[in-house]
Design a protein around this nucleic acid. Structure first.
Length: 582
DNA sequence: CCCGTAATAT
DNA sequence: TATATTACGG
């Protein structure tokens, strides 16, 4: 059972007890959703900042079963959060927003959202959210059974590139459908290539995720190309490939580290906008940034991941100054050996709901607050993107890939601009116009929309996979299964699985910025005062005309709906559905 | 000889 | 730039 992946997390029957993390900058909505979710017997955790949400998730990687997040949030774009979650913890994420703009919904889905709800949200919509959890679990199990990994790899053999599959994220159910490669084996293989070059491995998001998973499984300290390779179990991939990637990865991590230190030392000033440039670096793909709250981190450094943690203290600050990158890295290893049990993710298949591993440790970096958030993109982006750097319209960022919508895949291939692709369905690449639109949340959440017609914005990923030609595919994977629990976080929590301490960022992190933001938030909503008041009241109290009068319309609606739920009337649903579709 | 990493090449 | 290849010490 547990093995199955789904047995109830808690004692009761499956759905109940589902641990839901709700993220919405609007306190009123949080309240409402919390109520509704509780009515479904779910265990609810709320937070109004995406950053906090990420932190919570990182602290307790398997502390939640599903995440429901608003799309528009001041501190971090909901999509970005979605990205991080998909990459780091692989939890099902439900996005929500008031408007049902198609491009936005599409973006949500493309980025891995398992569902997209329009506010006002009704009970009936929440009652079944557990299905996503279950679905994911099932898929996970399936993957694992398949020795996870056989499926796709993206390697292009001597230049033949294929783009048929463009997965967005790594494995979500959303993308589950994806990978299908068989089709093209036909001859591409050796015909010319074998002798030619070696075929370059394209570290697609998928592949990278596998890599990360493997790394996490093993311990940061214990990783080695070979082990990773085995764990990844990707046919055609060589130890060298992994070693190379690992190097890059470490470099990336160390950069993050360094940044962190920097920031910490600086005092976490927000250098806001100015240069969005990702100082943090991108690991090829665009980098990531995540936030974490500083202070805390300082001490132990990166959140949960044990691996990273080591980094932090060991050399941390002072030392690294020296060189640049390299220094940091070295240290970790040794230190690490010491302890760490890997923790985090080992639980891959572990039963219950926790997500399996899959976290991206690196993510834990603390990038600069503001600026980074919005501008940086996680690793998920594919490397190829880099090509276009020139374009940078504003000098802000360099270009990046427009998300590919189903209809239009651009194959941006680094080396070979045009390849004949065997795939039939692929659309022809348009010259890619890469414009970057940043979504600077602070200003408007709207700009994600694209200029070109599709929605753009953060990452996208496109992958082209190539097949490896013959070569022996036997990689018996010896998965070293190691499972342990995360140990890092303190426990004291009700959760059976991982006893971890739940930290409420708001409380714990005093970062100036946060406070500031919080304040802003509170002040900003004219209705906040009201909201607060309301929060203390019984739900029914919402109906007080006086209060309601002050609510923004949408909130009002929300309340009504909520009320309806309570009363069990569900008629309104039609309304939004109508809105939605478009 | 295998591994992992640094250096260097493409 | 990203990834590959080579060199080298353990």
């Amino acid at each position: 059972m547990m093995e199955n992946g789904f047995s109830s997390p808690r004692s009761d029957a499956f759905p109940s007890g589902l641990r839901v993390l709700v993220v919405d900058d609007d306190p009123t909505w949080l309240k409402i959703l919390e109520k509704m979710l509780k009515r479904c017997s779910y265990e609810v955790t709320t937070c109004c900042l995406a950053r906090d949400a990420l932190n919570l998730l990182r602290e307790r990687k398997d502390g939640y079963d599903i995440v429901i997040s608003d799309v528009n949030m001041p501190d971090m774009d909901g999509f970005k959060l979605l990205e991080h979650v998909g990459l780091e913890m692989d939890l099902p994420v439900i996005m929500m927003s008031v408007d049902g703009e198609t491009s936005r919904v599409m973006k949500g889905v493309q980025h891995g959202a398992c569902d997209y709800l329009l506010k006002p949200i009704r009970m009936k919509e929440l009652r079944n959210i557990w299905q996503h959890v279950l679905r994911k679990k099932i898929h996970e199990v399936r993957d694992i059974e398949n020795i996870e990994g056989i499926d796709n790899i993206s390697i292009m053999r001597s230049g033949s590139a294929r783009s048929d599959d463009w997965h967005l994220f790594g494995g979500e159910d959303v993308t589950s459908v994806k990978k299908r490669k068989d089709v093209e084996n036909r001859r591409d293989e050796f015909s010319d290539s074998s002798s030619t070059k070696k075929a370059r491995v394209v570290w697609s998001v998928d592949l990278h995720q596998k890599f990360v998973k493997a790394v996490n499984h093993i311990g940061f300290d214990k990783v080695g190309p070979k082990k990773i390779l085995d764990l990844m179990n990707v046919p055609g991939l060589t130890r060298e490939n992994v070693a190379s990637h690992l190097q890059k990865y470490r470099l990336y991590l160390s950069r993050l580290q360094k940044e962190n230190d920097l920031k910490n030392s600086v005092g976490g000033i927000k250098q806001s906008d100015s240069p969005f440039r990702d100082s943090a670096g991108s690991f090829g793909l665009q980098n990531s940034i995540n936030i974490t709250q500083n202070d805390i981190s300082n001490s132990s450094f990166l959140y949960s991941g044990n691996k990273l943690v080591q980094f932090g203290d060991t050399k941390s600050l002072g030392g690294d100054t020296k060189g640049i990158v390299p220094a940091p890295i070295a240290e970790p290893k040794r230190a690490s050996t010491v302890e760490v049990s890997d923790s985090c993710k080992s639980r891959t298949s572990s039963p219950c709901f926790n997500n399996s591993f899959g976290a991206l440790e690196s993510e834990g970096n603390f990038a600069a607050f503001d600026s980074n958030f919005q501008t940086e993109y996680p690793w998920s982006v594919i490397p190829e993107i880099q090509l276009k750097q020139e374009q940078k319209p504003l000098q802000l960022e360099e270009s990046f890939h427009p998300p590919q919508l189903p209809g239009q895949h651009h194959q941006v291939l680094a080396g070979h601009p045009h390849q004949a692709h065997s795939v039939t369905e692929r659309t022809i690449p348009a010259p890619l116009e890469t414009k970057l639109l940043y979504s600077d949340d602070r200003n408007s959440h709207v700009n994600h929309v694209n200029s070109v017609g599709r929605s753009i914005d953060s990452c996208l990923v496109e992958t082209k996979n190539q097949i490896v030609n013959n070569s022996d595919f036997e990689h018996t994977s010896t998965t070293t299964s190691s499972s342990k629990n995360q140990g890092f976080n303190v426990s004291s929590f009700t959760d059976l699985e991982s006893g971890q301490l739940t930290i409420n960022c708001r409380v714990t992190s005093p970062s100036p910025l946060l406070d500031e933001e919080l304040q802003v938030r509170w002040l900003q909503g004219d209705c906040n005062a009201v909201n607060l008041a309301v929060q203390d009241k019984e739900f029914s109290g919402y109906f007080d005309p006086g209060l309601i009068a002050e609510f923004p319309v949408h909130l009002y609606d929300a309340l009504r709906f909520d009320y309806d739920h309570l009363c069990d009337s569900t008629e309104y649903s039609l309304i939004d559905q109508g809105l939605f579709i478009a």
